[in-house]
Computed example of a mutant assay.
Amino acid sequence: MITLHLTRADDYAGVYLPLPATPAEIGEAWAELDHISGDVASTRIVGAISNVWGIGQYLKNADVNTSGQFEKLNRIAELTGSLDRHQCHIFEGALNAESVNSLDDVIAIGERLEQYLLLSGVNTDRELGAYLVETGVMPFEDSVQPYLDYAKIGIEYYSNHGGAYATGGYVLRRESAEQALLDIADSSQNRQTPGGMEMG
Rank of each mutant, 00 (worst) to 15 (best):
Q69D: 02
A29C: 03
E25M: 05
G168A: 00
S42V: 00
S159Q: 10
L103N: 13
S102H: 11
D142S: 07
L95E: 04
V15K: 05
A151S: 08
Y12Q: 15
G196C: 10
L118Y: 03
E134R: 10
G38Y: 09
A166L: 04
H86K: 07
D39S: 01
Q115E: 11
N61C: 07
D125V: 04
Y16C: 07
V133M: 00
W53P: 10
S120G: 14
V133H: 01
L119R: 05
V106K: 06
Y58E: 10
E175K: 13
G121Y: 02
I155D: 11
F91C: 04
I153D: 01
D63G: 03
A177W: 03
E32M: 10
W53D: 15
D104Y: 07
D142I: 00
A48E: 04
P139R: 09
I109A: 00
D39R: 03
P139M: 12
N190E: 14
G27T: 08
G162E: 00
T80I: 10
K72A: 09
V15F: 00
L117A: 09
G196Y: 13
D183I: 14
I90C: 06
Y157C: 04
I55Q: 12
Y116R: 03
A21T: 01
I90K: 13
Q145T: 13
Y58I: 09
D11Y: 03
L181A: 03
F91W: 11
D183Q: 11
L4H: 00
P18V: 12
D34Y: 05
S176R: 11
Q192E: 10
M138I: 08
I49C: 03
T167W: 12
R112G: 06
S120M: 12
E32Q: 11
L118K: 13
T135A: 02
N160M: 12
E198K: 12
G195S: 01
D10S: 14
G47H: 01
R44Q: 09
D34N: 07
A48D: 00
H35F: 13
R174N: 07
P20I: 02
V137M: 05
R75P: 02
D142E: 12
D183V: 15
T167A: 10
V137C: 04
G195H: 11
V40P: 02
A177D: 05
A21C: 06
G136S: 09
A180N: 15
N190R: 15
G121R: 05
F70E: 07
T124A: 02
L113Q: 07
E25L: 01
Q189K: 14
T193S: 14
P139I: 11
R85Y: 15
G163P: 04
L128F: 00
